[in-house]
Write a protein that binds this DNA or RNA. Structure first.
Lengths: 161, 161
DNA sequence: TGTAGATAGTTAGTCTAGCAAACAATATTT
DNA sequence: AAATATTGTTTGCTAGACTAACTATCTACA
């Protein structure tokens, strides 16, 4: 492991002055991206043994929480389009973690359910997730974590009223 | 534009109880990913005329802020590896937005600088960024936005002390 | 009822991005 | 002087996001 001599923290907490964007340090989007990258890297490291990505683990989790869910339901919950969802489901199916079935109520839809292997993978994933979340949440008090989640969820609303 | 009949907001603000991860709704990583996705999509929409990605716009901005910066400097600031940085620089160079030069102080390094086209693209990007940030920050008070940035930046520290 | 439009899944193709591994050239350290 | 580190580069692989087209099915309404 080589440590860079100069550790550049590309951010300052915030800047004084008016909110216009003279400085990249004040761009919320920039910070979301950096944070996402850091979280992604830690996730990948934590899950390297399991060989599951964030998306894949989330899909396993959601399918387990919602048996017989259709791809479109997954897509909505994870805010992905159908094509992307297909690709992810295909990968998980190829590894034998879930199976597609026929919906009894809607001929267009299929049902998704975990296999035993899938359930086992999810169980391992939840253990790893605990470690990952610990890494994340160690940076925040419980109250702060709640606040962070609440603030992040505001991005997923259609439009602020 | 077809609107889904059922709009699924995949989150609840937070859940009561202890912080262990029985529920995907309490996973910070999950929310970061969703938020990042939403921000990314709005960015892409806002920047569709300019045909610039988040990364590309950020690189233009940083090169403008730091003339003669080397690729490795950019990589550190944006937390990318060298290979990824290469690819992004190559794309921007191919479009004539920046040029590579020779560093006078270190034979291994190259200098990056914007061309006139690059400066022009950045100027347009900053205008679009203003719109994008407005979309983002409309969800937050000024104080909340500052808090959010501060909290997000905690992910980019090595380890919490 | 019958038809037009919406929805769900699928496939193919394109693009960005991340990363590992290797290599050459240059700097730094010992 | 030799060993090690750093920087840029190339190649190859992977995941993921998106568009466009197509089929099958369902829904709505004239």
């Amino acid at each position: 492991m080589t440590r860079p001599k100069e550790i550049l923290i590309p951010v300052t907490p915030y800047a004084e002055g008016d909110p216009d964007i003279g400085d990249i340090k004040n761009i919320v989007g920039f910070h979301i991206r950096l944070a996402h990258g850091a979280v992604y890297r830690n996730f990948t490291e934590t899950f390297s043994d399991l060989e599951l990505t964030q998306k894949q683990a989330s899909v396993l989790w959601l399918v387990d929480d919602h048996p017989d869910i259709a791809q479109i339901g997954l897509a909505r919950r994870m805010q992905m389009d159908r094509a992307t969802t297909m690709a992810i489901i295909n990968r998980l199916q190829k590894r034998g973690f879930l199976v597609r079935g026929k919906s009894k109520t809607d001929g267009r839809k299929q049902t998704l359910n975990l296999t035993n292997d899938g359930r086992q993978a999810l169980a391992s994933a939840k253990v790893a997730m605990q470690k990952h979340e610990k890494w994340l949440q160690s940076r925040f008090s419980k109250k702060e974590a709640e606040m962070l989640i609440e603030m992040l969820s505001r991005f997923n609303t259609e439009k602020p009223v």
